[in-house]
Simulated scan of single mutants.
Amino acid sequence: MVQESSFGTTPSVADVLHERYAGRLPGALEDLTGPEHGRVELPLHIVWSGLRTYDLDRPRQRMGLYRTVLAEGQRADITHFLNRSLLLAQWPLMRTMISRHVREAWETAFPELEHQASAAA
């Protein structure tokens, strides 16, 4: 949706957020080659306060890492820290815990995520 203003047309907040997250997406889910196990430390440009080291073998910490990287990571971070198999396995629950803008960008680009969520329901 585009809004008129005294300065011309202005994209809606939803459009801006969708473009922000869509611009960070990998080319394919197969590009997500991050680790499946062990401890991962996120850099400061992704998480600037609080927990920075996550244990992928602990489901809550793994979910926290994925939510953080999806929201704050750039494309290189996403492909480096996220793993295709783990993302697919967690998606049915995780999609309810992330912003609508992140969820829509990912499910629009990768319909298999939405199918994964439907199959788990």
Rank of each mutant, 00 (worst) to 15 (best):
T10C: 05
P11E: 14
P11M: 11
P11Y: 05
P11C: 06
S12D: 03
S12P: 01
V13T: 07
A14Q: 13
A14D: 15
D15A: 15
V16A: 12
V16F: 10
V16L: 14
V16G: 01
L17V: 00
L17Q: 14
L17P: 00
H18W: 10
R20E: 07
Y21K: 04
Y21C: 01
A22I: 00
G23T: 00
G23F: 04
G23S: 07
R24N: 03
P26S: 12
E30Q: 15
L32S: 11
L32W: 13
T33E: 11
G34M: 14
E36D: 13
E36S: 15
G38N: 09
V40T: 03
V40N: 06
E41S: 12
L42R: 08
P43Q: 08
P43R: 13
H45Q: 11
I46N: 02
V47F: 06
W48T: 13
W48K: 15
S49C: 05
L51N: 05
L51I: 00
L51A: 03
R52G: 01
T53C: 08
T53G: 03
T53V: 03
Y54N: 06
Y54S: 02
L56F: 08
R58W: 03
R58H: 11
P59V: 07
Q61K: 02
Q61C: 01
R62K: 14
M63E: 15
M63G: 02
G64C: 00
R67L: 05
T68P: 02
T68I: 08
V69L: 05
V69H: 09
L70R: 06
E72S: 05
E72T: 00
G73F: 07
Q74V: 01
D77E: 07
D77Y: 07
I78W: 10
I78Y: 03
F81D: 06
N83W: 12
R84V: 02
R84A: 08
L86P: 01
L87S: 08
L87T: 02
L88Q: 11
L88F: 05
A89E: 12
Q90H: 10
W91E: 05
W91V: 06
P92G: 03
P92Y: 08
M94S: 00
R95D: 01
T96V: 02
T96W: 10
T96L: 13
R100E: 08
H101W: 14
V102D: 07
E104T: 11
A105K: 10
E107L: 06
E107H: 06
T108D: 15
T108Q: 15
T108V: 13
A109E: 09
F110C: 04
F110V: 02
P111M: 13
E112H: 00
E112S: 04
E112V: 00
